[in-house]
């Protein structure tokens, strides 16, 4: 039992480190090669965890070889178009100028239900509003709406605005986030008549606006 716990702990840390080395990606955003590597790593890690007859090194080495291959493949795909096409595939245009390309759909083995689902997930419930739909290499569908249905931007409406920038956290869970903001945060608390312990979150944007969330009692 102790060996199982030890092996599991070793493999857990090895897998975590390997996944960190491979980079940040959500499961839904994985490229085909990354998905294969992820599945294989989980399989390889589970075998020496359960089978005490196998040395931990056999699992660790197999995982490391996969990570090494993944790093090599990602470096090659970064440098070469050919490798990128081989390992990641190519995106395909399913709807072009509002017309569904049924040949592409057949080639990709995408049903009309899959397409409608993909469009809905992209926030579009009416196919007639879609100008372009592209099936990305990770299986997601990107959508461009027809001009008439596209959201108007501030630029379209000639509205000038200042950027709020990235809000800075001054107080987080009753504690001052950084010594740099200490005086500023205290001044704001005094103005609002609040104690530090009463504040759950205080942020400040580039326009000098403060946002305060009080702690629940």
């Amino acid at each position: 039992m102790i060996m199982t716990v030890t092996r599991t702990a070793i493999l857990y840390f090895v897998v975590i480190i390997c996944m960190r080395i491979m980079g940040k990606r959500q499961v839904g955003e994985l490229q085909p090669s990354e998905l294969v590597i992820t599945i294989l790593i989980s399989e390889l890690a589970s075998i020496p965890m359960q089978d005490l007859n196998r040395p931990v090194s056999s699992g660790v080495i197999a995982i490391l070889v996969l990570v090494l291959l993944e790093l090599i493949v990602s470096a090659l795909t970064l440098k070469s178009d050919i490798f990128r096409k081989i390992f990641e595939g190519k995106s395909a245009v399913i709807i072009q100028n509002g017309v569904i390309d049924q040949k592409v759909m057949k080639k990709l083995r995408v049903t009309i239900d899959d397409l409608l689902e993909g469009l809905r997930q992209a926030g579009n419930f009416s196919i007639e509003k879609v100008n372009y739909a592209v099936m990305e290499t990770n299986g997601r569908i990107s959508v461009q709406l027809k001009e008439d249905f596209d959201t108007a931007t501030r630029q379209d409406m000639n509205i000038k605005s200042k950027s709020e920038g990235l809000p800075k956290v001054l107080i987080s869970d009753g504690k001052i986030a950084s010594e740099v903001f200490k005086n500023e945060a205290k001044k704001q608390l005094k103005e609002k008549g609040l104690k530090l312990s009463q504040v759950f979150l205080m942020t400040k944007n580039d326009l000098g606006e403060y946002f305060i969330v009080r702690k629940e009692k």
Partner: peptide, 17 residues
């Protein structure tokens, strides 16, 4: 950074083998 990781992993694999 990834190149160094790759080299490190390669060295570990080679050493263990």
């Amino acid at each position: 950074k990834r190149l160094y990781f790759a080299l490190g992993i390669f060295v570990i694999i080679f050493a263990v083998i």
